[in-house]
């Protein structure tokens, strides 16, 4: 089986007045075909930039990306339409991906028109089917995106991305504007599409409970790099990287009685600026178990107990730190 996405040595640096921002700074990522791959990590650690760079919405400073076995930039250049059909992106901000003047119906029909899918009647039927898929009533068809609630808008953008039945779907925070019940509907929809159509999904998400529940694989990022990766359930059961441990510990319990008494790891300090990442381990400025060597040498990803890999000097296949 070929991998759906393989990124090697990906870097995205932004030149700003204040200096070079290393938003993504050397990421290797492999997403298996048919995987439901979660990307999690601190706000600002480069998840959106990485997701955009994977599909070419953001040009990479360095590195290559292969999608479905083909070099992404070659593919996108030589067969723009074919690429757009196969690979779809859902934005963090749903309004940003829709025209303010188009109704929901037009928004959903547009990709079908551009790719000359069916006749007008078939397209209308497909639009109705898409609305059903994302559990929106037909009455939204005549409305403008701005007049919908946040969650309704997000579902429109999901429906639009699914219109052409893509093979790879990359979504940046598609769930955060949704309420939990609709979130469950959408996640179950993704899981169904994945099982039935072999769709590969990469999802940037902050809802770790959902990631644990539905993702097959997960990548934890910190400050532009991969801190840890592995099979979602295994990694979440026994995270090896101190940052992952702190991240998971911060997930609140839905029961206020448990939440009031639950021990928590609180991270001290702020994340460093990606303009000037610390030498050595990127987490060393906040790591509760930091050692002198952490501030000098950057730890490489190495195999750890849960079967995945982590970038921490104190972690290997036999043991890891517990904070």
């Amino acid at each position: 089986m070929t991998d759906a996405i393989v990124a090697k040595g990906l870097k995205v640096h932004f030149q700003t007045a204040a200096g070079l921002v290393r938003a993504v700074d050397g990421v290797d990522l492999t997403v298996a075909q048919g995987a439901f791959h979660g990307i999690v990590g601190e706000s600002g650690c480069g998840k959106t930039t990485l997701a955009r760079a994977l599909i070419g919405l953001q040009s990479a400073t360095e590195g290559q990306v292969q999608i479905l076995g083909r070099d992404r930039s070659d593919w996108a250049r030589s067969d723009r339409k074919g690429f757009a059909r196969a690979v779809q992106f859902i934005f963090q901000d749903p309004l940003g991906s829709m025209s303010r003047r188009q109704t929901v119906g037009q928004t959903l029909e547009e990709p079908l028109q551009i790719h000359s899918v069916g006749d007008a009647k078939a397209r209308r039927a497909r639009v109705a089917e898409l609305l059903d898929l994302v559990a929106l009533p037909a009455t939204v068809l005549d409305r403008l995106p701005r007049s919908l609630s946040g969650g309704q808008r997000q579902r429109v953008s999901i429906a639009r991305a699914l219109a052409l039945s893509p093979q790879v779907l990359i979504c940046d925070e598609p769930l955060s504007a949704l309420d939990v019940s609709v979130r469950a509907q959408i996640v179950n929809l993704f899981a169904r599409l994945q099982a039935q159509l072999g769709l590969t999904i990469v999802i940037v998400a902050h809802d770790l409970a959902i990631v644990r529940e539905v993702c097959s694989a997960v990548t934890v990022m910190y400050l532009g790099r991969v801190a840890e990766e592995g099979v979602a359930k295994a990694l979440f059961a026994d995270p090896a990287h101190p940052y992952s441990q702190a991240l998971l510990s911060a997930v609140p319990s839905p029961d206020p009685r448990i939440e009031a008494t639950r021990p928590r790891i609180l991270l001290a300090g702020d994340p460093p600026s990606p303009r000037n990442p610390p030498p050595g381990c990127r987490f060393s400025t906040r790591c509760p178990v930091v050692e002198p060597r952490c501030r000098e040498t950057e730890p490489a990803l190495r195999a750890v107990q849960h079967g995945g890999a982590a970038a921490c000097h104190l972690a290997d296949a036999n043991i890891h730190a517990m904070i």
Partner: peptide, 30 residues
């Protein structure tokens, strides 16, 4: 949150996955 009565509230809370519970509940939808 811990003793909901209305059927909608109960459905809503049932679709919240508990990160720490060990039995995979799946994501229930209403």
């Amino acid at each position: 949150l811990t003793a909901p009565v209305h059927p909608y509230t109960r459905g809503l809370l049932a679709s919240v996955p508990d990160f720490r519970s060990n039995n995979a509940t799946g994501t229930k939808e209403i």
